[in-house]
Nucleic acid binder design. Structure first.
Lengths: 135, 135
DNA sequence: GTAAAACCTGACGTTGACGTCAGAGGCAAG
DNA sequence: CTTGCCTCTGACGTCAACGTCAGGTTTTAC
């Protein structure tokens, strides 16, 4: 598979694939004339990279995680790295959830036609979340 | 309150506060000599701005949301904007949750000492998540 | 055989949220 | 009054993940 095919198949740009290689995230076999050739499995690898990017990981972090995730490396350092990133994502999810609940509360207020919108203190958000979570 | 005080109190840099003003997110009263003075409520406003930044909103979006959240504006457009951003955050939470579950699965595999780490197909993640979610 | 399409490297451009520096003015303490 | 800290504006620097362009080579299609 050539770089254009991989780009089409995985939905990222050719430039991005070359950038991934530059960052050590994706390797390619080179033909005699220097053109990149990828195995079929490269599409999965690219998907994985995209997923990790979407989770807010940097190239450097992904480069550290990948051998541990794909090349079956299993050391104390790799496990620490994995759990650290997992915890980071957990914290990010928690922060986003709080913000979403805030927005939901504001939207609810906007729903009543004669009321203005206003930001709401944390404790009120918590109370409201409990309320709507209660069956 | 002067800009340095607000910076110390809200934990952001002086530069960031000036940037917020430039972006129309934060206004200041000016003394005769041109120095910025803020009311106590500015600290809350800065917190709110930080929260929205942390949720991935851009300055432009925050500038559009703020009057609707703090200045009690309630129009169809503002409601649409609010729900759109809420949905965006929801989607981001879902993506992060999937990535975290993936990482959890990899970490579990790493836990068994003789097994290598490996990326795991989606359906296996789902099965595992169901399993650990089942009491 | 030749034209179009795809590929190569190298290098500069972009965007957002600031950091940082320069040079000048403002303000309370001693 | 001057010392020292804070503040001002304006402008350039940064970093990451690419976009884009130039100029040249390779592969594919007819």
């Amino acid at each position: 598979m050539r770089i254009g095919d991989l780009a089409a198949q995985s939905g990222v740009s050719v430039r991005a694939l070359r950038y991934y290689e530059e960052q050590g995230l994706l390797e390619a076999n080179r033909s005699g004339s220097g053109q990149r050739h990828y195995p079929e499995s490269a599409a999965d690898r690219v998907q994985l990279i995209q997923t990790l990017y979407a989770a807010g990981l940097s190239s450097r972090t992904i480069a550290e995680l990948l051998p541990c995730v794909e090349a079956k490396v299993n050391t104390p350092e790799s496990r620490a790295l994995l759990t650290a990133e997992r915890d980071r994502i957990d914290a990010q999810i928690a922060a986003l959830t709080r913000t979403r609940d805030h927005l939901d509360a504001v939207i609810l207020l906007c729903g009543s036609p004669d009321s203005g919108c206003a930001w709401i203190p944390d404790q009120d958000i918590a109370a409201q979340a409990n309320h709507s979570a209660t069956p």
